[in-house]
Nucleic acid binder design. Sequence first.
DNA 1: GTAGGGTTAG
Length: 426
Amino acid sequence: MYFACGDAWRARQVFEGMSDRDVVSWTSLISGLVRNGCPLQGLHHFASMMHSEVRPDFVLLVSILKAYMELDDLPGATGAHALVVKSGFDNELDVVITLTAMYAKFGCILAARALFDKVPTPQVNVILWNAMISGYSKNGLAKEAVQLFKQMRKFARSMTPDSVTLLSVILASAQLGSIEIAEWMEAYVQGSEYRDDVFVNTALIDMYSKAGSIAHAHAVFERMHVQERDVVVWSALIAGYGMHGHAKEAVTLFEDMKRAGVKPNDVTFLGLLSACKHAGAVEKGWSYFQSMKHEYGIEPRHQHYACVVDLLARAGHLDRAYRFITGMPIKPELSVWGAFLNGCKMHGHSDIALAECAAQHIFELQQSNAGHYVQLANLYASAGMWSHVAGVRVTMRERGVSKETGCSSIDINGEMHSLHAGDHSS
DNA sequence: GTAGGGTTAG
């Protein structure tokens, strides 16, 4: 209850005062911590529990797996998976669902699929299917996601898609960029009980923006009830106009949104800034960046800085962009210098020193990416500095930079599944 | 006490 009120401290107080701690009370403490952004503390308590007499059950292990997901810790996650197997819970449906989502989250889509396929068909469960479909969507395997959605309908008697299913398939449709599939998805939504679902409609707006029809996206927005248009809905449409380079419409929408009494957030500004960037509206974007900080008190994140740098650099304001970067209150990340270098490539033939400076920062942050070296080489080439081009190649060889992809493998029930970066096979 | 989810970019 205290966790539900956001009071982790009180929750722990109650727990400490309990004399007979069973696995259920441990679980409520640990899952509460994991869900409230303190996965490390949750694992810490789990270690304490393991030193006591209490043994974990499958419900607790689900929370432990989620803790490692939160922490982005694949070795820890596979270790927890091993504990699940050792404890004999690897056939519990809830556990299999978590494991499927977990491996998908880590990009190990083949491992996720192997777990999914292991579940016997009578146990059809929407959440399991959702875990697999969204796993495909999030890993860019849109065709597989749509295909699995179509397969799901074979079980229509025992299982119907819910809003989460629809969100995942809409996300996949957005990646396919096909207006036919987008319209097919919208028709499906219209015929379902989720036609007025805010989440689903937001995803539809995003889908149409990415599939190339901002008019369709706007139509979805218009159909929504006014009171349902929250900041995420507005932001999705603003970003959509931005993607299409319609800065004027994005700005108008932004003003409409403010008039409607909806407060913009950091994502809204990102869409707005990106709209200005695509349209080359330097001063407009600059003033929105200022108002974001001073008028709304929103602290810019790396993406905002990268966007402003991109905005300035694309327009050829290289010196201004450089000064902006050096004045940043946080350490510029790869994306910031990357945007700058990109601008140099477009405009910097005369000022190769600035580009070299950007490249230097980039190599410092990520030495092993061949793409950066190629970019610098291209820049030298466009400036006719051929000896420098050759120099870049020498540096690459010296540092052992090549274009090979990474590979790792995962053990599921004694079977090794090999995973390659960018692997799309199944 | 547990499982899947909407807006950010090229």
